Amino acid sequence: MISDDDLYRLAIFLGSCAMMMIVLYHFLDVNASEEEAESAESASQIKAEGAVPAVSTDKVSASRKGN
């Protein structure tokens, strides 16, 4: 059977893991890119102008330099 000391160590370990997962989730959530907001803004501009905008390659090449 599991002793009280083993149960205590298991509870501390699992609690610590849960806190680390929460911190990691919030870190990833804060630093996530917001492409949905940008695409919604672009869609509203297209509807307002009534034309299809030209595609710029500057933004794509600049974002791939960092990778």
Rank of each mutant, 00 (worst) to 15 (best):
L10I: 01
E36I: 10
H26I: 13
A51M: 10
F27W: 01
S61H: 02
N31M: 03
S39W: 09
E35F: 11
E36R: 13
A32V: 09
E49C: 04
M21L: 13
N31Q: 11
P53R: 02
M1A: 12
A32M: 15
K65T: 02
R9I: 06
S33N: 13
A37F: 06
N31D: 07
S44Q: 12
S39H: 02
V60T: 12
K65G: 01
S61P: 05
E41F: 00
A11R: 01
S61W: 05
P53G: 00
E34L: 03
K65C: 07
A51C: 12
G50V: 01
D4E: 04
T57L: 15
S33Y: 11
Y25N: 06
L7W: 13
A40D: 08
F27A: 04
M1Q: 12
E41M: 02
S63P: 04
D4F: 05
S3G: 02
V60M: 13
F13V: 11
D58C: 09
S39Q: 08
T57R: 12
L24C: 12
M21P: 03
K65A: 08
S42E: 13
S63G: 05
G66E: 14
E34F: 08
R9S: 03
A62H: 03
A40N: 14
S33W: 08
V30K: 14
S56Q: 06
M1W: 11
E34G: 06
D58Y: 04
N67Q: 14
D4C: 08
A37R: 06
K65L: 06
A18F: 06
A32N: 06
M19S: 11
E41V: 03
A43G: 02
V60D: 13
K59N: 12
V23S: 03
K59M: 01
A11M: 01
D29Y: 14
S56F: 01
S63A: 13
E36H: 14
F13E: 12
A11H: 09
A11D: 03
V30A: 15
M20V: 10
S16C: 10
G66D: 15
S42G: 06
A43N: 00
N67W: 12
V60G: 01
V55K: 07
A37D: 07
I46G: 03
F27C: 05
H26S: 10
Q45R: 10
E41Y: 07
R9K: 10
V55S: 00
I2H: 13
A40Y: 07
S56I: 04
V30H: 15
V60Q: 11
F13C: 14
E38P: 04
L14S: 08
C17T: 08
Y8N: 09
F27R: 05
K65H: 01
L14F: 01
L7T: 06
L28P: 07
E35Y: 11
E36M: 15
S61I: 05
L24M: 08
L28N: 09
A51K: 15
I22R: 03
A18S: 15
E49W: 01
Q45C: 04
E49S: 09
C17F: 09
D6Q: 14
G50N: 00
D6H: 08
